[in-house]
Design a protein around this nucleic acid. Structure first.
Lengths: 143, 143
DNA sequence: CCCAAAAAATGACATTTGTCATATTTCGGA
DNA sequence: TCCGAAATATGACAAATGTCATTTTTTGGG
């Protein structure tokens, strides 16, 4: 579904969204442990995300990562697209070129409705929407 | 979602199910072209499937691959499990250990219903069910 | 009983993905 | 203005996946 990298990126971003702020930046090495991802690896991912304006970062002493107001409005799909590349979620279950509703492959209907449903959710929900759920305790963010 | 290997295996099995029979076996090299998969690669996959009694094979002259009555009754999930290993489809979108309906991760509800839905379909539908759809022209099997 | 056809087995190689280690740059504070 | 803290950059390495080539075994037919 998603690559490991995307999963890690999502976890890191969510962790930052909940725990960091401009006045309380978090260093890569302090994100690593709670989300259970090697430090150097999460650094590399955060650099990618930073370059794409999905997270904010400040170098030097008292530096670290956090999300500003704008960052929080990022739709979840953007994170996946940056890390995994576009339309990783777009292809048919069997990767058949011209599989569509008119000329479906045998497994098409097993996945089609859901896939669009999932995509809609990833497009319409922002990081901030997820944070609300976590703060309202309707969803959880363990390691 | 599935690995390439699983996709290829599914395509090969469906191709055999539609086009081969005990009296009309098909050689690996003749499956390769219509489903657009390298010959040696599809051979390896078919050997795997043959060892697990998902396809039938006969060596020597006039040999080849086909599906017998029993093979046709195989649920689709079995093919995926043999090639990709068990429960590749079981984990949560973020691969969080104890993510479930009671303690869902933030993305849980985006995927949960679909995943169970897809799994049910793969478990309850056999190769033969797919062949029926293809013959009834409600689904299609291009390359 | 040998020969050729075909599956089966084995292993080499390439690519992608994931992981780690080591520089390099930037910045604030003493 | 220099030092150390931290992000950033780069590249090496490992593992999984995908691809290809070669050899071995089995089998039917002449």
């Amino acid at each position: 579904m998603f690559s490991n990298s995307s999963k890690y990126a999502l976890k890191a971003v969510l962790y930052l969204a909940v725990n960091a702020s401009e006045s309380n930046k978090i260093m890569a090495k302090n994100i690593s442990e709670p989300i259970n991802v090697p430090q150097a690896y999460i650094s590399k991912l955060l650099q990618d995300l930073s370059r794409h304006d999905i997270v904010s970062s400040v170098r030097g002493p008292n530096g670290g990562f956090y999300l500003n107001e704008q960052n929080l409005k990022t739709p979840l799909i953007t994170i996946v697209n940056v890390i995994d590349g576009e339309n990783r979620l777009n292809s048919c279950l069997l990767s058949i070129q011209n599989c569509n509703n008119d000329k479906p492959c045998p497994l098409h209907h097993f996945a089609a409705s859901y896939r669009t449903h999932l995509l809609e959710n990833l497009e319409n929900n922002t990081i901030n929407d997820m944070v609300k759920g976590i703060k309202a305790k309707t969803s959880f963010l363990p390691l």
